[in-house]
């Protein structure tokens, strides 16, 4: 087991350093594509981190992404970059605590409805504040962060989110969440504070999303609320994670990579059919792949080794 773990760690390290070389080898186009891939991989994995075990359908991705991006727009020039990131992370976490505590005690539908409108709500509040109080709408982002630097930060975030997921699965919190996933009533009667467990996970996932938004912000030189809080991100991330399979840590990436490529292709060549195809993928997931690509792989494995799980009595 330890040997396997060591091999795995070694392979991961090798893979990461290989991926870290990309900015030196690739031209601007491929680097931009790499950034898109990493961005959606991190977002979708972070989404699955929370929604996989709890089965809450969250549409709040845009809200957190936007908070991160807009924090950079406001503070980017005033503070050193690491401090800006820290502030963004804290704002995202605080927002997640607020949203989580007020909605996660209730049934899943309320959560969907609330997160559905959350990004738009925050956008309206930001616009109102900018127009009436600070008297600026739209800000220029002049921070000394190059494309390569964005790429490396996203790569670090990707490594962090997988490490986090791996650690959570092996922690008390992870065990508690599995029990909640099986039967929430039993979980509370076992002494699990289910609200705290769910909110904790939501905050972790939201903080990662916020950081992605902050890291991505310097890509635009000009940010206004409607750019930062673009609702489409929530839907894309949702569909990527579901296509891959949100019940496994490595599931969402299997959806994020092909769909990022597909969306890149579509929005460049067929902007009008984009939403129709997005809709069709939703239907494909619901009717054909309810457990995602991961579910497909798992089913194949189970049919090839049918007796593996049946241990002798």
């Amino acid at each position: 087991m330890n040997a396997r773990l060591a091999t795995f760690a070694l392979l991961t390290a090798a893979g990461l350093s290989l991926m870290a070389m990309v900015p030196y080898l690739a031209n601007a186009y491929w680097l931009a594509l790499g950034i898109s891939l990493l961005q959606y991989t991190v977002l979708a994995t972070a989404w699955g981190l929370f929604s996989g075990p709890t089965r809450y359908v969250s549409l709040a991705t845009t809200a957190f992404f936007g908070v991160g991006a807009y924090t950079v727009a406001v503070l980017g020039e005033a503070l050193p970059w690491p401090v800006v990131l820290a502030v963004a992370a804290m704002l995202g976490a605080a927002l997640a605590v607020l949203v989580g505590l007020s909605t996660l005690r209730l049934s899943g539908v309320y959560f969907v409805i609330f997160t559905f409108g959350l990004a738009e709500l925050i956008r309206q509040l930001v616009v109102w504040f900018e127009v009436n109080k600070s008297h600026v709408l739209g800000r220029y982002v002049f921070v000394p962060v190059t494309q390569a630097l964005i790429y490396w930060q996203l790569l670090a975030l990707a490594a962090a989110v997988f490490a986090l997921g791996w650690l959570i699965a092996r922690s008390r919190l992870g065990f508690a969440l599995r029990i909640i996933g099986e039967d929430e009533t039993v979980a509370t009667h076992c002494g699990i504070n289910t609200t705290i467990a769910k909110v904790t996970l939501f905050v972790i996932s939201a903080t990662v999303m916020t950081l992605v938004g902050a890291v991505m912000a310097p890509r635009w030189t000009y940010i206004e609320p409607s750019i930062a809080f673009n609702a489409m991100i929530s839907f894309q991330v949702l569909i990527m994670a579901l296509l891959g399979g949100a019940h496994r840590l490595w599931g969402p990436v299997l959806g994020a990579v092909p769909l990022t490529l597909l969306f890149e292709l579509l929005s460049a060549n067929f902007p009008n059919t984009f939403t129709i195809i997005l809709g069709c993928i939703f239907l494909v997931i619901v009717y054909l792949l309810p457990r995602g690509v991961v579910g497909l792989i798992e089913r194949r494995r189970e049919t090839s080794v049918p007796v593996q799980r049946r241990l002798p009595a």
């Binding site: 089965r55 359908v57 049934s107 899943g108 539908v109 969907v112 839907f235 579901l242 009008n272 059919t273 984009f274 939403t275 129709i276 195809i277 997005l278 809709g279 069709c280 993928i281 939703f282 239907l283 997931i285 619901v286 009717y287 309810p290």
Partner: peptide, 25 residues
Amino acid sequence: RDALEVDSILATFGLAFILQGIMLS
């Protein structure tokens, strides 16, 4: 009921995008 809720949310989301896409085009 929970399973139906999640399924219907996703399916009608798909439907919403398809309808919207048709109207956009």
